[in-house]
Nucleic acid binder design. Structure first.
Lengths: 240, 240
DNA sequence: CCCAAAAAAATTGTCAACAGTTAACGAAAA
DNA sequence: TTTTCGTTAACTGTTGACAATTTTTTTGGG
């Protein structure tokens, strides 16, 4: 009896079977654990109990261990022999490192996109940006964030470098491994919109150097906003 | 009885045990398989036989499967359910993608290093570059390549971003997944030396923008050399 | 001789059991 | 009361077995 379906995305039994035919149980467990991490159901530093997880997902420990190793390979989990596997916890320094790398990757995406962008793509990019500006004016955060996410995804997906897109996503995921996940995507709507506008201008102008500059800066400034908040928090320790 | 030691780096029995106490068998297998891939004992596209590998390394299939999943997570292996796991094979397009990313990462390393380089580090960098120039004059390839490798490693390790260093290495490893591994590190000693000189100058000048430029260009030009060779090979198909 | 279907072998996917290690708990001594 | 030691429980590491699938070989017909 596959308890899997309970805690997973809803799927019809036939679909469930179709998935099991092409991807191993380990792969299913891997996706599920990643989801649990990204949703915050697993917190950074938390230990993963193989037995518990296996019975919750209705499998044995074998596939669970394989899934854990896969996630370890992609940097979301850290294992210590005989002690267990833990959700990776990023220090402030490591968050800084992630942003530096992400900045370089996103800058590359901007540059590549500027060199190859099509009219259709420009139109869609414009749609995202004006949409975000509108949502921002209306203080409609629930509309803003999905648009913001889609905008960034669209850029890295349109750059013509699949590995780059995958790596970029991998580093965005890593930011969920910081203790204060909620702070990461916070703040600075007005500033962001201005930056988005410039990115769009650079891409529209098909200017790779400018686009690289603008895209890099956008991530760096997101990093600075986050570090400022962290520093502010460090000042007034308590409150939780 | 651990047949492991045969195919691995030589270690005394006590050391062997010390390793086994801190790293699981799966981790040992993972390192070993990675070594086999990087040494070319496993070729891109080749299938990995779990039973065979397990008995060769003196373990059971469990740790082997875990190791395979870890390597899948870091992008060296691809698995298909019920068919097996295969050493990943990179297309020319994917090689191009790897170089683009590597260029961005190495450019970042150069920029960061230019901002924080110490006198000691400058001296060592200078040593590498003059060493390579000397080896190049003497046509001493056996001396050149280790120096070249150490030079690049030293740069990414000194940039003050551990994750960047790890990622950079990961992408260099991926280049071994191209069918013609041997071509990857070939050619262009004179040109490389000129580029190395400029990189050193930019770092010495502590000029982040220049260093970024120079480091990026260095990787791009390595890519172009490789792509030229590939194109030349495509012209005259046979010979193997 | 070649092709298709069936049988056999090989290989992967999953599981349950066992061994070894670590962590938790409680009792005895300082 | 605190600390230390020993016992017990929980958990991880590894293995071998079994089930399911794919690949190879064999066999029979055209």
């Amino acid at each position: 009896m596959p308890k899997v379906s309970h805690s997973m995305m809803l799927r019809s039994p036939s679909e469930e079977l179709a998935v099991l035919r092409t991807s191993s149980l380990a792969a299913v467990v891997e996706r599920e654990v990643e989801r649990l991490i990204l949703n915050g159901r697993f917190s950074p530093g938390e230990r993963i109990n193989e037995n518990k997880l296996a019975s919750e997902l209705g499998t044995s420990r074998g596939p669970v261990r394989e899934a854990i190793r896969a996630l370890e390979g992609s940097g979301l989990i850290v294992s210590v022999r005989n002690r267990g596997s833990f959700i990776r916890r990023l220090s402030v320094q490591e968050v800084r490192e992630v942003y530096e790398i992400r900045s370089a990757l996103f800058g590359l995406a901007g540059k590549l996109l500027a060199e190859r962008v099509t009219a259709d793509q420009l139109e869609r990019l414009n749609g995202y940006v004006t949409g975000m500006e509108e949502a921002s004016r209306e203080r409609n955060f629930d509309a803003y964030y999905p648009l913001n996410l889609a905008f960034h995804e669209f850029i890295v997906d349109s750059a013509g470098n699949a590995m780059l897109a995958q790596q970029y996503r991998s580093f965005v995921k890593k930011l969920h491994l910081f203790r204060a996940r909620s702070l990461v995507q916070g703040g600075g709507l007005g500033v962001s919109n201005k930056e988005h506008r410039e990115m769009l201008s650079a891409i529209t102008a098909r200017d790779p150097v400018w686009a690289h500059e603008a895209h890099c800066r956008h991530v760096v400034s997101a990093r600075d906003r986050l570090l400022n908040v962290i520093e502010a928090e460090a000042g007034k320790p308590d409150r939780t």
